[in-house]
Structure formats: structure tokens, C-alpha cells
């Protein structure tokens, strides 16, 4: 599956547009990690545990978007965009969306 956030695939023609596909996941922060983050809250700096958590969550959102695209017979998702929002205190939604297309092979 080809994923890209530009609108074309250089050197390939788009044969069919299959509409928008999306994937999302909502993740809450881990309590144990949150205590460590509390210390970071005094000194500042990167919250590595959160960086990883969100990175994994974003991968999951992409995987779900890809699953949608595969289900409708696409072989590429173009013009992909990401969006993050804090749904409630302590939980974030990761959202990925794009256009599912069929491109010519080769």
C-alpha cells in the first residue's frame, strides 16, 4: 500500500478515485508514566514516554486507514492528513485521513 501526503504519485497515473478513507484511535496516558511526567513538569523537557505513545497511536490510526483502503480495493492513499485533538483531560485522539485511489502498477 502506497501512502503519500501529496496528491499524485510521480510517474504513475491514477486510474480510479475511491473516496476518503480514515483511521483513528483514542489513547489515554499511562498512570505510571504520568507520575514521571509530573517530575518533567517541573524541570521541563521531552516526555519520551508520551512521544512513543503518540507515535504508536498514529501508526495504529494509519493502519486502520490502510485497512479501510484495502477493503475497498485501493492500492494507494494520497493526500493524507493527520489531526490530533485532546478529547478529555488525559486522552488524545489521533486521526488520519486521505483519498483512496487505484494507481497503475509498475
Amino acid at each position: 500500500m502506497l501512502i503519500s501526503n501529496i496528491e499524485i504519485v510521480p510517474g504513475h497515473r491514477v486510474l480510479r478515485h475511491l473516496g476518503m478513507v480514515q483511521g483513528n484511535t483514542v489513547r489515554a496516558k499511562h498512570v505510571g508514566k504520568d507520575i514521571l511526567a509530573g517530575f518533567k513538569n517541573i524541570f521541563g523537557g521531552e516526555l519520551t514516554a508520551y512521544t512513543e505513545l503518540l507515535s504508536e497511536a498514529r501508526e495504529e490510526a494509519v493502519a486502520r486507514m490502510v485497512a479501510h483502503a484495502q477493503a475497498i480495493g485501493a492500492n494507494a492513499v494520497l493526500n493524507v492528513r493527520f489531526s490530533t485533538s485532546s478529547v478529555t483531560a488525559g486522552a488524545a485522539e489521533l486521526f488520519a485521513y486521505g483519498t483512496a485511489v487505484v494507481i497503475e502498477e509498475g
Binding site: I6, P10, A37, F43, G45, L54, V80
Partner: peptide, 26 residues
């Protein structure tokens, strides 16, 4: 948005970071 003309392999790449505000800044 438009890549330079030619035939390219493409891949979606990304990088993230979470930073916390220190107490003084807050």
C-alpha cells in the same frame, strides 16, 4: 505540494515530539 518532475519512489515519513513546559515557564 508538487514534486519535481520525474519518476520517484515515495514514502510517507514523519517525526513527533512531546515537550513539557517547565514550572517557571508555566
Amino acid at each position: 505540494r508538487r514534486p519535481p518532475p520525474g519518476r520517484w519512489q515515495t514514502a510517507l515519513v514523519g517525526g513527533n515530539v512531546v515537550v513539557s513546559v517547565d514550572y517557571f515557564k508555566r
